[in-house]
Design a protein around this nucleic acid. Sequence first.
DNA 1: GCGATCAGGT
DNA 2: CACACCTGATCGC
Length: 434
Amino acid sequence: METGMISVDRWSEGSQAYFLTHLHADHTSGLTPTWKWGPLFCSRLTAKLFPMKFPGFKLSLLKILDLGNWYSLSLVSPSSGLPTAVQVMAIDANHCPGAVMYLFRGEFGSMLYTGDFRWEKRSQRAQIARTMLLNALKNEKLDTLHLDNTYCHPSYSFPSRNAAARQVANIIHSHPNHDIVIGIDSLGKEDLLFYISRLLKMKIWVWPERLQTMHLLGFLDNFTTKTSLTRVRAIPRYSFNMETLQALNTMRPTIGIMPSGLPWAAKYCKTKGNIFGPSPSTCSKKMTNGDLVFERYDEYTYSVPYSDHSCFFEIKEFVELLQPSNIKGIVSSSECFIEPQYYFGHFCGKKHDSRKLYHKFCDEEGDERFKGVRIQSPSKVNCNMSQRKRRKKEAGISSSRVNRVSLLRRMRRGIKIADADNESIPEKLHFFSV
DNA sequence: GCGATCAGGT
DNA sequence: CACACCTGATCGC
């Protein structure tokens, strides 16, 4: 598709229609309450959560796309100046609440943008999404797949979220006299918390803004902001650290559980031989409990492979199902980034030389790129920090400005709670003139 | 003075 | 490893 038509999760000026896949901060960078380049298309649930994240945003810019419907947009081709129609369908991405993929079709052919997605074949939601996708495509070939390639490497292997949730429950069961803290973000992992809450027949503490989110999502009874009611608390991931856990343990015995796909990235660069082989065991403290395996970091912290992104095998199944003509990775910032074409080119029925490129990459840099990162970054950090401190000292900057900025940010978060209001959501539309 | 953005950390 | 999001510094109006 030519540029100047649509943007997905990109918010700079110059497109005729903007699409938001979900509300995580790394997909809304550039979007502010004063943003005005709309219209902005998103799922119904994202629209419901939107005012909390962007209070004061002009809600008439939001256009809701219900799942599984085709919507038609009248755009203008920037090159010819002629009108051109683009059809779009939103499909459940099974990532965080409200997250969708977008299937587009028009003169350019067909294009699927997954955003962040989890493709758990056995989950009912993924099966519905699968049916929607296949019905929408009928027998047409998908021309371009923009793919969530976060874990697009065979070493990224982790279980379903249901299995990971059972691991969390298992850890909690084996600590009947401990307080539990679980690290979460502003959106996502609600099903995990809900599952634990039902299983333990216990409310889970969340911070006030998160409770507001839970209520918007329809969880009315399982969460609380009263600490006295429960021994299980979900806390922001940024405050989940060793210091916090040590402090908590001075008051009550407490363990931390971090649900994340990340620690399960096998350090394949350390292994010898076949990178397609099974994920190597990387943890010396792996513990078993029944038939479940979990990872213990230190005396307080457990890590559980609960991921809202697809593992490698799920990405493979997804690409195999769709067999697109072209694949592009959405995530490209990774040190470890490898074009999905390398693994899945054979599903695309196209000749390509990415395999050759990959080998070149490995041969030239191999383990060194990882060693380089490990060795260089601490010294670089130290250098930057000392430079920064020196500059600050030289400039004689007091901390009053900084404290004020931080305070304002915190106040705004508080105001968001008070202002949160989901009344004025626009009506469903099937045709949009842009 | 203030919002926007970047860098750096976890 | 790299997710999602924080804080603090700096930029530019």
